[in-house]
Simulated assay, not measured.
Amino acid sequence: MKFVEREDWGAPASSPASYLGSARGVKIHYLGTEYASRVHSKCDDYVRSIRASHLANTVEDYVDIAYTALVCEHGVVFEGRGSHKRPGANGNADLNSRDYAVCALLGSKGLTTPPDAMLHGLRDAIEWLRRDGDAGTWVGGHRDGYATECPGDQLYAWVQKGAPRPGGSAPAPADDVYVVKPGDYLSVIARRLDVSWQDLAKVNGLRAPYTIYPGQELRIPGGAGGRDVPPFPGTGAFVIGKSHPAVVTLDEGLIRGGWTRHHDGNGYQKGPMFSEFTRRNVADFQRSRAELRGDPDGYPGPLTWQMLLS
């Protein structure tokens, strides 16, 4: 990955944008104006000009360059607001709280076809945000959920294929992921998967009006989708000091995954009693997952059960 930090292209080291703990995924943008191909030594000039124009925009009142990152035709990723910072480019406050925003230096005139190097750079940016920004697996275009032509038909076609690296294939969807089909509604998908639509919305960070898009990947809560995981036994199985057969299954998952830091001094052993050591080990696991770390209380729910035992 060829990465240029903010200070190296002329911005302050840290963006003043508000904190973003995690995101559903990444939205791809383009410039939407005429853009001419240029030598790489001129790309940082253009990134600086974008930041200057955003700061001068009194209508939007941007606090910084609006994008999380920008990628030039040479495949270099320029840090914009950066990871764990809310972007300003997705259209409104709700959309900016949901996804990161990565802009390709690609025009609606001039340079309109993304070169392979740019596609590699966009893929680098996506993987960087998943690794360092707690971004989920969803990848979409600016037009997904907002009335715009961005990121242009050519780049959006690449996005719809799963944003693959040139010469390779799209990343395979993770297990227990449902790919939205044309005409799908959240309630229909929920019935098809035998889960509640409320749980489906919560796991995927969806809020009213619960809009979904063809090609979007939805995480399936609570073990639906065909994995060989025992049904969730209910929260009543996990009470401190009480025994339940499901705790043995839970312990097996903890031991298999190495989540055994807390014990009575003789190593963590599986057994039917839900102890304080069990709760602390479950909390360690929850803190390790972006989907769970918002409330790592150590008490398994359907999603913790599914993810730990998968």
Score class of each variant (00 low, 15 high):
133 G>Y: 06
66 A>W: 15
117 A>G: 02
63 V>G: 08
175 D>S: 10
125 A>V: 10
140 G>T: 08
109 K>W: 09
66 A>P: 13
74 H>Y: 13
109 K>L: 05
158 W>M: 04
104 A>H: 00
131 R>Q: 14
147 A>V: 05
92 N>Y: 07
173 P>C: 05
145 G>W: 00
164 P>M: 11
123 R>P: 03
64 D>I: 02
60 E>I: 05
77 V>L: 14
83 S>L: 08
77 V>P: 12
139 V>W: 01
155 L>C: 01
137 T>H: 11
76 V>I: 13
133 G>A: 05
179 V>M: 15
68 T>L: 01
138 W>G: 13
110 G>L: 13
98 R>S: 14
141 G>V: 04
142 H>G: 14
108 S>A: 15
183 G>L: 09
94 D>G: 06
129 L>K: 12
169 S>F: 10
117 A>P: 11
162 G>I: 00
148 T>A: 08
130 R>K: 04
150 C>S: 15
106 L>K: 08
82 G>N: 09
66 A>Q: 07
175 D>A: 14
96 N>S: 06
132 D>L: 02
96 N>I: 01
164 P>K: 13
171 P>T: 04
144 D>A: 14
63 V>M: 15
98 R>I: 03
157 A>N: 10
109 K>D: 12
74 H>V: 13
72 C>N: 15
104 A>W: 00
153 D>L: 04
101 A>K: 03
77 V>T: 13
75 G>L: 01
146 Y>L: 05
61 D>L: 07
113 T>Y: 11
115 P>R: 03
91 G>S: 06
114 P>F: 02
153 D>R: 13
111 L>I: 03
103 C>R: 10
126 I>M: 07
103 C>A: 09
81 R>E: 11
86 R>H: 01
170 A>K: 01
183 G>A: 10
85 K>N: 03
84 H>S: 06
99 D>V: 00
148 T>F: 15
120 H>G: 02
75 G>H: 05
104 A>M: 00
176 D>N: 12
182 P>N: 08
138 W>A: 05
162 G>P: 03
180 V>Q: 02
83 S>V: 14
86 R>I: 09
88 G>K: 05
167 G>N: 10
180 V>S: 07
169 S>Y: 08
128 W>C: 14
83 S>N: 12
85 K>S: 05
167 G>R: 14
122 L>Y: 06
113 T>R: 02
147 A>T: 08
141 G>H: 03
175 D>R: 08
118 M>E: 12
145 G>N: 12
148 T>Q: 15
138 W>Q: 14
96 N>K: 00
65 I>F: 09
178 Y>G: 01
160 Q>H: 08
72 C>Y: 00
152 G>S: 12
179 V>A: 06
64 D>F: 01
64 D>R: 03
61 D>E: 14
169 S>I: 03
60 E>R: 09
120 H>R: 12
149 E>R: 12
168 G>R: 11
150 C>G: 09
165 R>F: 07
145 G>Y: 06
69 A>N: 11
71 V>I: 00
135 A>S: 15
133 G>W: 15
107 G>V: 09
68 T>I: 02
150 C>Y: 04
59 V>P: 05
107 G>E: 08
123 R>V: 02
77 V>W: 13
158 W>A: 01
